[in-house]
Design a protein around this nucleic acid. Structure first.
Lengths: 162, 162
DNA sequence: CCTGAACTGTTCGATGTCGAACAATACGAG
DNA sequence: CTCGTATTGTTCGACATCGAACAGTTCAGG
């Protein structure tokens, strides 16, 4: 019943499907994420690099003063990758590194006032963006999907042996 | 009810959440995709670069002989990115470029016999991987999520003005 | 106190993806 | 046929992310 196109047929219009691989969560997840991320960034191309790192910025807002390593885990990037990112966000005046008094190795990361302002605005945009993504879907379907994604993330994180 | 941690609290254990941004599909989508892709690649680190491009290979298998530009659209990458990828896959002996007789600009892309073999094996692995991702979830929840992701992808693709 | 293991942020080289440009080819309007 | 436009694969420079290495720091055990 769910055969968007005959596999192997040289159909003229529409997009190519992946045959049986298309039935997997991982496959659709990747496709959807690439397209969603791209669309969001293009729509806000005039907002500097903040849109790309909105997820990170939102975490910093909810958890001010956390060390970089903790933030890296939260956004599923590597400590080394976060260095450059925070350099950029600091240069754009959105965040601040304050060296921790308790632990001289680590920095606490904080939003600047400008950062707070930008994040608040971009979060509004992101809600609008999400509404576009999910057009034509019921609130129930969306809620189920959020729940499933939570579980998928949790399943993957328990396997994350440092 | 769904408050994994108090926002703003300096909770000791667990992972940091993104506050209100966490409620969006786009945010969870990105997190889940990064973790899933990474886990799959690490598990199959000894299989060359095929795991990373399994989605592409599966499409080629289902639609042999398609031009590169078509494949690029299907996997949501750019034409220019696909050139290097196909170079690698050709060098590993998994695919073949055959110049089209009808249009001397374009190449048809085909799996080699080795490619067919590798893809078949990796698709088995990917099904196993997907089962791990979705552990603890009901078939209904998974089906709903697949449906939602399909719709999200469709919504994003209609906006893709060339 | 001392010493070694673990953790922090950082640098560096390798690889992946992008956007803008390009030559070759196809094709439609006249 | 002819000319302009669109498309195809490609190259190139910019940027993002990674893994491996590193120095500085913390801390537990002896």
């Amino acid at each position: 019943m769910t055969a968007p196109e005959g596999q192997g047929d040289d159909d003229a219009g529409g997009h190519l499907g992946a045959g049986e691989a298309e039935a997997t969560i991982a496959y659709k997840l990747r496709l959807a994420q690439i397209l969603a991320f791209r669309a969001f960034e293009e729509k806000l191309a005039d907002h500097g690099r903040a849109p790309r790192y909105l997820g990170l910025l939102a975490i910093i807002r909810s958890h001010p003063g956390q060390p970089q390593s903790r933030l890296a885990e939260a956004v599923a990037l590597r400590r080394s990758s976060l260095v450059t990112i925070l350099d950029i966000l600091a240069e754009e005046g959105l965040i601040e590194r304050r060296s921790s008094p308790q632990d001289r190795r680590s920095n606490g990361i904080w939003l600047t006032d400008e950062g707070e302002r930008v994040v608040a605005e971009l979060l509004r945009e992101s809600r609008r963006h999400d509404a576009e993504l999910t057009a034509g879907l019921s609130p129930q379907e969306i809620e189920t999907t959020l729940h499933v994604l939570d579980r998928v993330i949790a399943n993957l994180r328990t396997g994350e042996a440092g």
